[in-house]
C-alpha cells in the first residue's frame, strides 16, 4: 500500500514541520509515507487568477508525482479541493492526462479526511492541555466537504478545552492573490477574523490549511497577540509525542 505525501508549496517552503508531523504520526500506525520529489504546486494560485495554461503545467507535476500511489494525502483542504474540483476541467482536452487526473481525484484526501474516513482513526491518544479554537477553512469545508472530521479528532484529545470560534465559517480574507490584489478588503476581513479568535481567549488556533493560518497568524502577530497557530497535524503530533 503506497501512501504518498502531497506537501503543498506553503508547507514545503514555510511550514515543513506540518509535513514532518504527518509523517511521524502515520509512522506510528505503520504507514510509511512516500514523498515524490517531482511535485511542485497544485496550480491553484494561477488557476484562480485566470492563468489556466500556467496552472496546467504546475498541475501536471502533481499528476506525474502520484501516478503510482494508492493514497495521496495533503495538509490542505484547499489544495485537495483544487484537484477534485478543477483538474478535470484543466485537462479536458488531453485524454491521457484527463484519465490520470481522474485517478488522482479518486485517491487524494485531505489529512483529517484520510485519518477519519480512510483509516477510521479518531483517537490518537493525544494529550494537549490547552484552550483551543478551530477555524474551518472555506475550501476544505464547502468545496471538499471536510466538516466533522477535525471536530471528531479534537474531541478525543485529552485535556483539550475546545472553544468554538464565533462566525467560524466566515472566510479569513486570504483568497490567495486576493490578499495582494485587494489588500485593503483582505486586511479588513482578517482583522475581523483575528478579533473573533481573540474573543475566544484560546491559547491555540488550529486549522487544516496553512494559507488561512498564515493569514490569521500573521495578523495576530502584527497585533502583538501571542496566540499559537498550528495545523491540526502538528497539534496531534505534539499531543502524542509529549506523552511518550
Amino acid at each position: 500500500m503506497k501512501v504518498s505525501l502531497f506537501i503543498t508549496c506553503l508547507s514545503d517552503a514555510i511550514y515543513p514541520r506540518v509535513g514532518q508531523a504527518m509523517a511521524r504520526l502515520l509512522h506510528h500506525y505503520g504507514i510509511e509515507l512516500h514523498f515524490p520529489e517531482v511535485q511542485t504546486c497544485c496550480g491553484q494560485p494561477a488557476f484562480n487568477s485566470g492563468y489556466w495554461d500556467t496552472a496546467r503545467e504546475s498541475a501536471r507535476t502533481i499528476i506525474d508525482a502520484f501516478e503510482d500511489s494508492d493514497f495521496v494525502i495533503a495538509p490542505s483542504g484547499s489544495c485537495v479541493s483544487m484537484i477534485h474540483h478543477h483538474y478535470e476541467t484543466l485537462f479536458v482536452d488531453e485524454p491521457i492526462y484527463l484519465k490520470k487526473a481522474k485517478d488522482l481525484i479518486a485517491k487524494s484526501y485531505e489529512f483529517t479526511q484520510f485519518l477519519v474516513k480512510v483509516l477510521g482513526i479518531t483517537d490518537l491518544g493525544a494529550h494537549f492541555p490547552h484552550k483551543v479554537t478551530y477555524h474551518p477553512s472555506c475550501h476544505g469545508t464547502r468545496l471538499l466537504g471536510v466538516k466533522d472530521e477535525p471536530y471528531q479528532l479534537l474531541e478525543k484529545v485529552e485535556g483539550l478545552e475546545f472553544v468554538p470560534l464565533p462566525y467560524a465559517e466566515d472566510c479569513c480574507g486570504f483568497g490567495g492573490t486576493f490578499a495582494v490584489k485587494l489588500s485593503d478588503i483582505s486586511g479588513a476581513m482578517v482583522t475581523e477574523k483575528a478579533e473573533h479568535v481573540l474573543e475566544t481567549q484560546a491559547e491555540v488556533l488550529v486549522g487544516l490549511d496553512m494559507g488561512c493560518l498564515m493569514n490569521i497568524g500573521g495578523r495576530l502577530q502584527h497585533a502583538g497577540k501571542p496566540i499559537r497557530v498550528m495545523h491540526l497535524a502538528e497539534l496531534l503530533y505534539e499531543g502524542v509525542s509529549k506523552q511518550s
Partner: peptide, 8 residues
C-alpha cells in the same frame, strides 16, 4: 476579483 472564492 472582488471575491476570495470562499464559496459562501
Amino acid at each position: 476579483n472582488a471575491s476570495t472564492l470562499c464559496g459562501a
